[in-house]
C-alpha cells in the first residue's frame, strides 16, 4: 500500500512531532509512506471564510501533489473534511474525485481501513480528556455526538483503549466546541477565547493531565487559552500516543 502523507500547514510549522509520529506510526504497519515535497495546504482557510475562488489554486496544487496514491492520510480532521466534503473550487475531474475519495483522517484510517487491533509499543499511564474536534465528530463521524439518540460509538476511544495504562476522564460538556473554528478564532477572538477557557477548565476539573485530540488546531488554541489563564494542562495529539510517546 502506497500512502501519501499530508501534513497540514500549521502542523508543519508548529507541531512537527505530530507529523513525525504519524509517519512513523504508518510505517510500523509496513506501508510505504511518501511525503510530497510541494504540499502546502488544502484550501480550507479561504473556503471556510467564504472565499471559494481564492481556494482554487491551492486545491489544484493539493491534487497535483496527491494523485496516484492508494490513500492520502492526514493527522487533521478538519482538513480531511474539507478535502472530502467541500473542495469544490476546482472542476471535479475524475482525478480530483479520486484524490478526494481516497483522503482519510488518521484515526478513521487506522480504525476503518487498517483495522488495527493492537499498539503493543504504546504505553500511556495518564488520565486524559478526549477532545473530539467538531470536524471529526460531526462531519467525519468519528463518534456518536451527544445530540443524537443513536447507539454510542467512538473510534478514537476504541484506538486509545488499546494503549496500556491510559485512563479517560469524564467531562461535564463532552462535545462542546472549544472555540477554534478556523478564522473564527481571530475574527471573533473574544468569544473564541472564552470558549477555550471554558473548555480547558472543564478538562481540568475532570482531572485530566492531558487533552488528547486528532486535531492539532484545536489543541493549539486550547493550549494558548490554558497558558493565558494559568490552567496547568498538557496537550498531545492522538498520533503521538498511538506511536508510543511516553509523556
Amino acid at each position: 500500500m502506497r500512502i501519501g502523507l499530508f501534513i497540514p500547514c500549521y502542523i508543519d510549522a508548529f507541531f512537527p512531532e505530530v507529523g513525525i509520529a504519524t509517519l512513523e506510526l504508518l510505517e510500523r504497519f509496513g506501508h510505504e509512506v511518501v511525503y510530497p515535497h510541494d504540499q502546502t495546504c488544502c484550501g480550507q482557510p479561504m473556503a471556510n471564510s467564504g472565499f471559494n475562488a481564492e481556494a482554487a489554486d491551492t486545491e489544484a496544487l493539493f491534487v497535483r501533489n496527491f494523485s496516484g496514491f492508494d490513500y492520502v492520510v492526514a493527522p487533521s480532521g478538519s482538513c480531511v473534511h474539507h478535502v472530502r466534503g467541500k473542495f469544490d473550487a476546482i472542476e471535479q475531474t475524475d482525478t480530483v474525485k479520486e484524490v478526494r475519495a481516497r483522503t482519510y483522517e488518521l484515526v478513521e484510517f487506522l480504525h476503518d481501513i487498517l483495522k488495527v487491533d493492537a499498539f503493543p509499543w504504546a504505553r500511556f499511564p495518564h488520565r486524559v480528556g478526549l477532545h473530539n474536534s467538531c470536524g471529526t465528530l460531526r462531519q467525519l463521524k468519528h463518534a456518536r455526538p451527544s445530540e443524537l439518540n443513536e447507539p454510542f460509538f467512538s473510534k478514537p476511544m476504541d484506538l486509545l483503549s488499546k494503549v496500556e495504562g491510559i485512563e479517560f476522564v469524564e467531562l461535564a460538556r463532552p462535545d462542546e466546541c472549544c472555540g477554534f473554528g478556523g478564522t473564527f478564532s481571530v475574527f471573533e477572538e473574544v468569544v473564541s477565547t472564552k470558549m477555550g477557557y471554558d473548555k480547558v477548565r472543564d478538562h481540568a476539573q475532570a482531572g485530566a493531565e492531558y487533552i488528547v485530540s486528532a486535531d492539532s488546531s484545536c489543541l493549539m488554541h486550547q493550549q494558548g487559552c490554558a497558558e493565558h489563564i494559568g490552567v496547568p494542562m498538557k496537550f498531545i495529539h492522538i498520533a503521538e500516543i498511538l506511536n508510543g510517546a511516553s509523556a
Binding site: 508543519d12 510549522a13 508548529f14 507529523g19 513525525i20 478564532s185 477572538e189 494558548g224 497558558e227
Partner: peptide, 22 residues
C-alpha cells in the same frame, strides 16, 4: 494581533516537519 490578545501564541519548534523530513 487578534490571536495573542487573550491567548498565548504557539511555541515555534526548532524546525518544521518539512525540514525534519528533508
Amino acid at each position: 494581533n487578534a490571536w495573542g490578545k487573550h491567548r498565548e501564541v504557539p511555541h515555534p519548534p526548532k524546525q518544521t516537519f518539512h525540514s525534519w523530513y528533508k
